[in-house]
Design a protein around this nucleic acid. Structure first.
Lengths: 152, 152
DNA sequence: TTTATAGTTAGTAATTATTACGATGTGAAA
DNA sequence: TTTCACATCGTAATAATTACTAACTATAAA
């Protein structure tokens, strides 16, 4: 099943004109198998055993490329920058609930822009909407009872 | 008028138990006078003339502190991390329209969470909602007709 | 006003994150 | 299988962030 996801990522790379290298196949597999987010470092560490002498350069370049192509999405999780693969099974625009403990991501059907009336002087290009909290699993484990404060 | 804003920031520091140092007064003045966002570097550059030998350390520590206390807010603008002072005049929770050209910020009255029904298994802690685009001024100047694509 | 002290900053350096670039290697098309 | 534009490596430079100790200072208490 995961292998199928990896293949979808590779196809997406291909469709966008990227060459399919061994390293990129590995990146695809990493993201396909990841339960949550991956940092640049984690991607590097997940590859360096296989390709010793791998340069961070390669990782950064590919992450940036894949993000620009919409294959993966970039998030600022607390203090660090992490990536995760876009949801293939729902190829329409959507948002996420993000668990602060296990980093698991739950897709949302609703988008706040659907019934949002923009001020007429402002031309909207894009928006960001993310909800952070604790998922059912992590609540049951007793983590996350110290809910933080609201922030814009 | 800006001086008044700076004083509000200083008062907020004081209220939170921070000591009022000359450097912090300067940071307050910087944010009060800023039209848009400030990066850590810009804050540093805005201070180093007055305090030569100023360490980046001091800037980073204060930015982090001020953010934790809610005096300033942290944003990821395109590729860089920037800060701006919280809106004092509206001390209730709200969001922003952010101009991609001039970085000006326009407060929004509506919050998508007001009529959002959370899935019952998920305990919401906080959320992020930001709208990016081009403000009236920048549109008139002919910038920003090449609107980008939608992104989550 | 003076003193004590906890919080703050400077100075220095280490660590981490990110980008640059020329030489070499390789996927994919002809 | 040859070709070549694209990728990667190797190395290094640059930028961003954090650590730590000694010196300094805002604040409260004496």
């Amino acid at each position: 099943m995961k292998e199928r996801d990896a293949e979808l990522i590779v196809q997406s790379m291909n469709r966008h004109g990227l060459r399919i290298t061994e390293q990129r196949r590995t990146i695809a597999r990493l993201f396909a198998n990841a339960t949550g987010f991956l940092s640049a470092k984690e991607v590097f560490l997940g590859m360096v055993d296989k390709y010793n002498g791998l340069s961070f350069n390669t990782v950064y370049r590919n992450l940036k490329l894949l993000e620009e192509l919409g294959v993966i999405e970039r998030f600022q999780i607390e203090d660090s920058i992490k990536y995760r693969v876009g949801c293939f099974e729902r190829n329409h625009h959507h948002h996420h609930l993000i668990c602060l403990t296990c980093s698991r991501v739950f897709p949302l059907e609703t988008c706040p822009m659907d019934n949002f009336q923009a001020p007429d002087h402002f031309q909207i290009v894009k928006h960001k909407f993310e909800i952070y909290g604790y998922c059912g699993n992590c609540q049951r484990r007793g983590i996350g009872e110290d809910a933080g404060t609201m922030s814009a």
